[in-house]
Computed example of a mutant assay.
Amino acid sequence: MAKKVEVKDLLEAGVHFGHLTRKWNPNMAPYIYMERNGIHVINLYKTVAKMEEANEALKKIAASGRKILFVATKKQAKDIVAEKVANVNMPYITERWPGGMLTNFVTIRKAVKKMASIDRMKKDGTFLTLSKKERLQVDRLRAKLEKNLGSISEMTRLPGALFVVDTMREHIAVKEAQKLNIPIFAMVDTNSDPRDVDFLIPSNDDASKSIDIIMTQVTNAIAEGLAERKSEKQSKDEGDAEDVEETTNTVVDDMEDETLDEKVPKVKIEKPAVAKFKKDVEEPNEEKAEKVEAPKKSKAKADKGDDDLTKIEGVGPKAAEALINAGLDTFEKVSKAEPYAIKEILTEASSRMAHLDPTSWPKQAKMAADGKWDELKEWQDQVKGGVE
Rank of each mutant, 00 (worst) to 15 (best):
K263T: 10
T259E: 05
T247C: 08
P272H: 05
T219E: 02
A223P: 01
T216A: 09
Q234D: 09
V264M: 07
N220V: 04
D257S: 15
K266T: 10
T250H: 08
D280T: 08
E270P: 08
A221W: 01
T216E: 11
I269R: 03
L226V: 10
A241P: 07
L260C: 03
R229H: 05
E283F: 11
N285F: 10
I269M: 09
D254E: 12
P295F: 01
K271R: 15
A227E: 13
V264R: 12
E293A: 13
E286A: 13
K291V: 08
K279Y: 09
T259R: 09
P265W: 05
V251H: 01
S298I: 12
V267C: 05
E242L: 14
N285A: 04
E245I: 12
K266G: 00
K279I: 11
D254C: 06
K288D: 04
K279C: 00
E224W: 02
E258R: 15
E287Q: 11
P265C: 03
M215Y: 03
M215D: 00
E286T: 15
E238I: 12
K236M: 10
E228V: 14
V281H: 01
I222W: 00
K279D: 07
A227P: 03
K236H: 07
D254R: 13
K233S: 06
E270F: 07
T216C: 05
K263S: 10
T219H: 03
T219N: 03
T247I: 04
E246D: 10
E224L: 10
T247H: 08
M255L: 15
K233H: 04
T219Q: 04
D237Y: 04
E283V: 13
E238P: 00
A289T: 15
L260Q: 08
P295R: 01
D240A: 07
K268D: 09
V244R: 13
M215H: 03
P272A: 04
G239M: 13
E287K: 11
R229Q: 12
A273L: 06
E228Q: 15
V251I: 15
T248G: 08
I222R: 02
L260S: 05
E293C: 04
V267T: 09
V252P: 01
K297M: 08
D257V: 11
K297G: 03
E245S: 14
D253G: 06
V244P: 08
L260Y: 07
D257Q: 14
I222D: 01
G225K: 02
N249K: 14
A221L: 02
L226C: 03
I222H: 01
L226A: 00
D261V: 13
D253R: 15
I269Q: 01
